[in-house]
Nucleic acid binder design. Sequence first.
DNA 1: TGTCGTGCAGAGGTCCGACCACTAGAATAC
DNA 2: GTATTCTAGTGGTCGGACCTCTGCACGACA
Lengths: 250, 250
Amino acid sequence: MPKSDTHMTMRVVNHIRTMIESGGLQPGDRIPPEREFARKLRISRASLRTGIGYLAAMGVMDVRHGVGTFVADGPPELGKSSLSLLGALHGFQSWQMFEARRILESELAAMAAERGREQHFTALSEEVAEMYATVGNPIEYLIHDVRFHRVIAQASGNPILAALMETITSALYDERRKTAERSRDLKESADLHREIYRAIRSRNAAEARAVMERHLTMAQSAQDLELSGAPAPLSENGKPRKVRRKPVEV
Amino acid sequence: MPKSDTHMTMRVVNHIRTMIESGGLQPGDRIPPEREFARKLRISRASLRTGIGYLAAMGVMDVRHGVGTFVADGPPELGKSSLSLLGALHGFQSWQMFEARRILESELAAMAAERGREQHFTALSEEVAEMYATVGNPIEYLIHDVRFHRVIAQASGNPILAALMETITSALYDERRKTAERSRDLKESADLHREIYRAIRSRNAAEARAVMERHLTMAQSAQDLELSGAPAPLSENGKPRKVRRKPVEV
DNA sequence: TGTCGTGCAGAGGTCCGACCACTAGAATAC
DNA sequence: GTATTCTAGTGGTCGGACCTCTGCACGACA
């Protein structure tokens, strides 16, 4: 990426970064209009926009057409579709994403059992109830499913791991946005979530980890089955990649 | 982020994404010059650059001034400084980064013990040797330290987890780029790496996980000590955040 | 009085065309 | 042969014009 001093992009990024680190800029805050900000920074509007675009791509800024540019609010997120794009590029396998998710969320569940607070338990309980109430509506169910896992991530007390989980799950959903689950499975799913909730609430970290792992393993095999009947592949790549000096055709 | 059809940015992103998914664009490939590409896509060069900038920020493209724009090569990486920026924004604590790293790398070490291949073992062994050879040179030592962990990530067979690890460690290094380690610690560090190597080589996953965890825990406390003498804090945040409608001062 | 529609101001989005800065390789001088 | 200089090609920056979207004030209407 561009160097620090020379490039306008980095000048903007560093300027905003400094403002954030000094506390002068907080989540939800609005930065000045582009024209004005550019004038104040003594750079062109185009360059300013490049820098803002960089920050927006990484989820640090939130640009709203016709409204203004804001510092990102809400839970920390890496670039929303970054993993999805990288996956397409490097040929990430579906089972690898599931594995990563399984590892992260199992640990997260254990941490939530150890550090969770009453408010988290309450929220988890509510989501479980909503899941049971919407077993007949996959769309609605999914919303509470996502929220349940998100609350666990919050309860873990480690926002970094939570952000990583968010990145993976969003890439996962992006890949399977077409496959709708069958209602029959949802009842089992809700049961498992209830088990997870109970383990966390009783501060049984090992149990929480184990049940979460079971839940995600089941979810994976269920989707594998639904998709192609193929089990998780174990491919290798000793790719002797060719380098094209000439631009590719478009 | 911008919508799919309307916004030029997403038009570019989706176009390139499609080219990647269809296999027409592979890591290392070069895309046409901006002027030509823009003409072919029937958009302005500025818009094209916005889209490319987005992809570059996420580590999918590699733009080289005076040379050309290429599809990113090498190991997959999320936006290099994304975590660092998000950390500044959301106030990530140092111990949280270490914890995330510890969890990821412990698991990675265990997976490497199970799935690693001869070539990985060889590479690990070489790095360990280099580490012993450079205990008197912290700069050099660090290089092999990083490589050692990177090989383990590769040997794990899960590039997604490897990319996440890379993201965290680069953010960590970014934070501590000033603190140089003392030579005395390096000997101990090398010993631990050797232990990790042996555990992995003998395919003892549990041992590999345990030693890696020990190593990272020690590294953390060593740095905590060096930095401020303060132990890992356990802070909380029930931040009642204010929302500023007016742009902040710059 | 309350509601709905319209217009406007301000913000980001796109475009153009010119020029600057960097890189690699070709041409040249030694 | 080697070192230097030149140059074509490519990304980087600029500014200034115009388009599009959003939120809100204002006024017409019921």
